[in-house]
Design a binder for these strands. Structure first.
Length: 934
RNA sequence: GGUCGCUUAGCUCAGUUGGUUAGAGCGCCUGCUUCACACGCAGGAGGUCGUAGGUUCGAGUCCUACAGCGACCACCA
């Protein structure tokens, strides 16, 4: 018996209990069942696994939930992500793997701090008034109240995660691991602290990393400013200027030089000269630097090392001073002289006015350029000299590149590996310090005496350098992505070597959107490879890079857009709330929508019309169940019981052999597609199987066999019913990863609420048994279907009333006849015939007949047919056949084609040509007869 | 500025290494209260695969150019 049909337990013997659990409501109502099962899965801890279970030999399938921000609300992107992960996790679990899906939330430094600050603001207070400690306590309080929202939503969606492992990135154990990681990197010389140009958000008042800056094209201005040249005697030479161009004139307050390209002929006479910085009055040198391009602006660039990364580099090369002219809030500081206290944009305006007044303002040009904004609050970022902590990224990046290059990590779709390499190869050191309060505080202590820094795992009693006891902890916290980058191993107990770590690391798969490819995925790869390389393997041997990676595969999914392909955003007001949609259509329908649209590489335009269709699908499943249960109950009354544990019902019936063959073919395809993350294909295949094969054909045919009358062959009825129930049960398992709720409900009902396992999720996924895939039966059935469809079409053309039965004749080859004969009642029933006769000579008129490549069928029905319309139809057919024939013959007469094309193609084309020729002849004959008729 | 992707039926999308007559869902048209389902059943219409070249016996599929759309990366003031 194939797994596809294997029931692990007896179908309950209580089926004669009059219909109790089998009594399903007429229409499927997801709200009536989903909450119940969602709660059941959680309370029964069905998806809990531990490392001890690994000894059973099951292969671990570990997957880490990309932790949503603790402040987050579930959106469609989450739901897509979670649906994909859940399908895969459920599938692996049902395939017998040790499937572990670990959930958690991210403390999300800036986002959470902003949220609580807003709250404080509405209460008329602020974090500064509260003080650091009280503020942090307040954030924790916020988290206790609201932090679980997104995971509660996730529970409602039925995600089969191990809730006993739920983590929060600020948990004690994870915080300890973060500290450990920081200290180790520091010991290894991979963390340094220093004053460099960083991206500063004046609103958040913290440094942010390059990645947190989003560039936006903006229409701005390029101002030219004339800097007076100082002559021999220390005085400006009248009429002598060096004109620079800038987009940020306010930074001129901090200028320390003007740079020109050494090759630039226009300025060679100024090399070594000094300039008078307007408004500030100090003398600044003209320096030469090959970085300056002569063809941009005026070819002369003001040098402000404290406010621009390029200028900073120039400053370093030329030993220039750096003058910071702005404070943390983007206001001019005392270095800005009379502009002190002004907001940067107010200062800009004032400065331009003053320059203009002095006649030093040159041409002003429109200039489109990319402006960096804070990813979080969209404030224009100020590049600014600031003392921060950095990770020396190159050594980590090298290893992370190697891991992907050597195939230790596989990307799906593969093109994302390119994007990854592109970024990794152009990476800059990572600024990991943030001037926030909410986050992992950097484990470094400043000495009040010698000013040196002590980095330590525990609060040190004294300075490691001078022994001074007046030490205070660094106030900065770490970038949130630093801690989340460690998660693949810290959630399993790192830095300890735990059984969990031995069992579940590396995780198998990461499922995520490309938007956090660099933020998170790349960082996990770098940090995972770096830290886990030092962790011995479970058997104690040394770990190689291939086993140090945080995951073996990365599946990058699409972005969910609205039905008009617009990005969903709060400001556009086009955000589709998954929970609302779920309440409207049911979780299963929404999940199925997402899965069926999740084809790799393209964004998903989420459309409710589609979800409506999948709710109809769920309703279809529901009603198939009602039909089956109704018959099981009728059978019980007739003393017929089905036993899912009995050997496979061997039936000679065409439809039985066919549906079992189809089930196995489909199981094979679905398993293959899920293995390739083709959720769309997998969903399409099960949908088509259930609706198309199972309901439209098999159920209709099986109705013929469900004869419960006294005179009936009980064994045959029993066999038919058994195949029906067993196939349905297997189909439920096949569908279960996609639609966990409805399949759970119906699966329990199939077993009369005495199922062999606590959940369908713990049953086995159907696996194909090749011996049961019978292609001859499948082809035969396809032929039979074609006969039925042709007859139905004919009925329609002849306008046979729906209720009326018609007599049919058929002409077919011996093989097809042998297929149909024993089961011709199938045709009779489905095509609503009073009888089907195998004809030797064809007597029916062409208007009453249809010919295909393998058979001719006709209806013995009198109707005044429209000869003209019929002739037109045949004429159209004829044209089509002739075109096809011509094309086929052209190819078959082509010597090059015959010589080069594979035999299979040539043979196929020959067969097609002869079939088409036959059809053409039949059509010609029919037209001829029609002429006589007229 | 660099990189990558997309363009197939009215709409949303499939189409595996080039191979015989390009598919699905929704929508549309026609008929049907057929005792599981009108969230249904049955039948049907609808596509010169963005444009122009090229490679090939053969191109929706590979190459080039162009057009349109989109995304990501970026320290030219």
């Amino acid at each position: 018996m194939p797994d596809g049909l294997a029931g692990d337990a007896v179908l309950s013997s209580n089926l004669d209990t009059p219909g109790m659990p089998h009594e399903l409501q007429k229409a499927y109502d997801p709200t009536a069942i989903e909450d119940r099962w969602a709660a059941y899965w959680v309370s029964e801890r069905l998806f809990h696994v531990d490392s001890a279970s690994a000894t059973s030999g099951a292969k671990p399938f570990t997957i880490l939930l990309p932790p949503p921000n603790v402040t987050g609300r579930l959106h469609m992107g989450h739901m897509l992500n979670q649906t994909e992960m859940d399908i895969l996790t459920r599938w692996h679990r049902m395939c017998g793997d040790l499937a572990l899906w670990v959930p958690g939330t991210d403390h999300a430094g800036i986002a959470t701090q902003m949220m609580v600050e807003r709250q404080l603001d509405s209460e008329g207070t602020s974090r500064q008034q509260l003080g650091r400690e009280a503020f942090i306590e307040r954030v924790w309080e916020w988290r206790r109240h609201y932090g679980g929202a997104i995971l509660d939503q996730m529970k409602r969606l039925g995600a089969s995660v191990d809730w006993s492992r739920e983590y929060f990135t600020m948990d004690e154990n994870l915080s300890r691991a973060v500290k450990e990681a920081f200290v180790r990197l520091h010991e290894q010389g991979l963390i340094y602290r220093g004053a460099y140009i960083v991206n500063w958000c004046p609103r958040c008042q913290t440094a942010i990393s390059d990645l947190e800056v989003v560039h936006e094209e903006q229409q701005g201005k390029l101002w030219e400013i004339r800097y007076p040249v100082i002559g021999e005697h220390g005085k400006p030479e009248p009429g002598q200027f060096l004109t620079i161009a800038t987009t940020r004139p306010e930074t001129m307050l901090g200028d320390v030089a003007v740079a020109v390209n050494p090759e630039d002929e226009r300025y060679k006479h100024l090399h070594g000269k000094k300039l008078r910085l307007p408004l500030m009055g100090r003398e600044i040198p003209v320096v030469t630097d090959s970085w300056v391009s002569s063809d941009f602006g005026t070819g002369a660039v003001k040098v402000t090392p404290a406010h621009d990364p390029n200028d900073f580099a120039i400053g370093q090369r030329h030993g220039l001073e750096s003058i910071s002219v702005m404070d943390d809030t983007g206001h001019i500081n005392p270095e800005g002289g009379k502009y002190e206290g002004l907001d940067r944009y107010v200062a800009r305006k004032r400065i331009l006015e003053d320059l203009d007044a002095q006649g030093l303002l040159g041409t002003v040009r429109e200039h489109t350029h990319a402006v960096g904004k804070c990813d979080r609050c969209k404030t224009v970022v100020e590049p600014r000299l600031s003392t921060q902590w950095f990770i020396k990224i190159q050594p980590l990046a090298d290893q992370a590149i190697a891991a992907v290059e050597h195939g230790h990590i596989k990307f799906t779709p593969a093109q994302y590996a390119k994007t990854y390499f592109e970024w990794m190869r152009n990476i800059h050191d990572w600024c990991i310090s943030r001037q926030l309060w909410w986050g992992h505080r950097i484990p470094a202590w400043h000495c009040g005496k010698c000013r040196q820094i002590t980095v330590a795992r525990e609060t040190p009693a004294q300075c490691a350098h001078c022994g001074g006891e007046n030490i205070t902890q660094e106030t900065d916290v770490l970038d949130t992505w630093f801690s989340s980058g460690l998660l693949p191993f810290t959630v399993f107990g790192w830095p300890e070597r735990t059984p969990d770590l031995d069992t579940f690391y590396p995780t198998q798969l990461l499922v995520t959107g490309f938007d956090i490819l660099f933020f998170w995925v790349a960082r996990m790869i770098m940090l995972g490879c770096h830290f886990m390389l030092d962790m011995p393997m479970p058997d104690g041997s040394e770990r190689a890079l291939k086993d140090a990676v945080p995951f073996r595969e990365v599946y990058i999914h699409a972005l969910v857009r609205d039905a008009d392909r617009q990005k969903m955003s709060k400001t556009k007001g086009n955000v589709i709330d998954p929970i609302e949609t779920v309440q409207k259509y049911g979780t299963d329908a929404v999940r199925f929508t997402l899965a069926s649209m999740a084809s790799p590489g393209t964004d998903i335009a989420f459309s409710e019309a589609r979800t409506e269709g999948y709710r109809a699908f769920a309703n279809k499943i529901w009603n198939a169940a009602r039909f089956i249960f109704m018959n099981v109950d009728r059978a019980a009354e007739a003393g017929i019981k089905v036993d899912l544990n009995a050997p496979a019902p061997t039936s000679d019936r065409l439809e039985a052999r066919w549906i079992i063959s189809r089930l196995n073919s489909v199981a094979r395809e679905v398993n293959a597609m899920l293995g390739e993350y083709r959720f769309d294909e997998a969903a399409r295949i099960v949908y088509q199987f259930f609706w198309g094969d199972f309901c439209d054909w098999y159920l209709e045919i099986v109705k013929l066999r469900l004869d419960f009358s006294e005179s009936a062959d009980k064994a045959a009825t029993r066999a038919a019913l058994q195949t029906l129930v067993a196939t349905f049960e297997a189909a439920l398992r096949l569908l279960s990863p996609f639609m966990p709720f409805i399949t759970e409900e119906l699966w329990h009902a199939v077993y009369d609420d005495k199922p062999p396992a606590k959940s369908i999720a713990l049953s086995r996924y159907p696996q194909a048994d090749d011996r049961l895939i019978d292609s001859e039966t499948e082809i035969g059935m396809a032929q039979l279907q074609e006969i039925v469809v042709t007859l139905r079409a004919l009925r329609k053309d002849l306008e046979v009333p729906e209720r009326e039965l018609a007599h049919a004749e058929i002409k077919a080859n011996a093989w097809l006849q042998s297929i149909i004969s024993p089961d011709h009642e199938i045709v009779t029933k489905l095509a609503r015939l009073s009888g089907l006769e195998f004809a030797t000579a064809w007597k029916l008129s062409p208007a009453n007949s249809r010919t295909t490549a393998s058979f001719t069928v006709g209806l013995d029905y009198e109707k005044q047919i429209d000869v003209a319309a019929e002739r037109e139809r045949l004429q159209k057919k004829l044209e089509q056949y002739e075109k096809q024939l011509a094309s086929a013959e052209r190819q078959l007469n082509n010597k090059a084609f015959l010589a080069k094309a594979p035999e299979k193609i040539v043979a196929g084309l020959k067969r097609q040509a002869s079939e088409t020729a036959l059809l053409r002849q039949e059509t010609l004959d029919a037209l001829e007869k029609l002429k006589q008729l007229a």
